[in-house]
Design a binder for these strands. Structure first.
Lengths: 158, 158
DNA sequence: TATTGTTATACTCTATAACTATA
DNA sequence: TATAGTTATAGAGTATAACAATA
């Protein structure tokens, strides 16, 4: 029912009985507080659902971006995802030890590494993307379709 | 201009010139990815703005909730904020060393500590709340009022 | 038996600074 | 001199498990 009318006021996501009767005071007026709560739920659900492929949200995002941008540099990857270059080094080291990614020498610039997925990396990423889609569906169900759509429209592209 | 018409499609939050030309692929369809990016921005801005009172987002939320619920237990506080009880111990230890909070014996239950703010704690919290309000205004400006309102309506109560 | 607060451990994330090699 | 990758460090956050005191 794609309504043209204003949707009914949204209520709390968590059932009342699981919420302690404690006054949040100013936190009720802090968007960041609720964004943080959503993000914590997202990470917990994501990590649980991707435990079979043993990928953290950060590792998943790294594989996705390398998969769609073969040959990009670590600096470009770090800047894209907002990860510190220093942290990316260890993260890639872990993925490389599992033979999911490769660091090849860049032909044009001797300082750079050209990042690629291995055959195993591509296969694992395919499985991981399917699990990530299940997580996305769970998030949509948790929020409800109206709230999910609204939050996505507001957050997309940030 | 409170429009009854559907708002124009929202565009990316960050200026184009600061965004690397890298394909995010599936991440464009993961709400959690963008929620995470918003949350990282929120934490960075919050920490910077509250550096004068030296309070992290977690410490601020603890002070706010104790301030509005004097005498509550550590378990209730931890459950309310979604913080591990074990972590709350160290967090409160730090606040207590700065003479911002107190752990008093609970009259009814010998296991519990009744949490209170000290006089200094209340004074610091007043300053911190003013800074947090400035942070909130900055977030609203960063998102734009329409996007801010939409995200808040979707996330509130989570 | 269950709950509250506590200690301890391990791992991840974040933020820095400094180093090297290349440009 | 600036950039790319690396190493190292310190402080937070997260997730557990186990324990003593109390209910």
């Amino acid at each position: 029912m794609r309504s043209g009318k204003r949707a009914a006021k949204l209520t709390a996501v968590h059932p009342a009985e699981s919420r302690p009767a404690v006054d949040l005071d100013d936190l009720n007026n802090r968007l960041g507080y609720f964004v943080r709560r959503v993000q914590v739920w997202v990470f917990q659900d994501f990590i649980r659902r991707l435990s079979g492929v043993d990928l953290s949200p950060a590792q998943f995002s790294v594989l996705v971006v390398i998969g769609a941008n073969a040959g990009l540099s670590q600096s470009a990857l770090a800047a894209t995802l907002g990860i510190e270059r220093a942290r990316l080094v260890r993260l890639l080291h872990g993925l490389e030890q599992r033979a999911l990614t490769q660091r090849l020498d860049d032909a044009d610039d001797g300082r750079r590494h050209a990042l690629h997925l291995t055959r195993d990396g591509r296969k694992l990423l395919t499985r991981a993307k399917a699990l990530a889609a299940e997580h996305e569906a769970a998030l949509k169900e948790k929020l409800g379709p109206e709230r999910y759509r609204m939050m996505f429209e507001a957050a997309r592209g940030f």
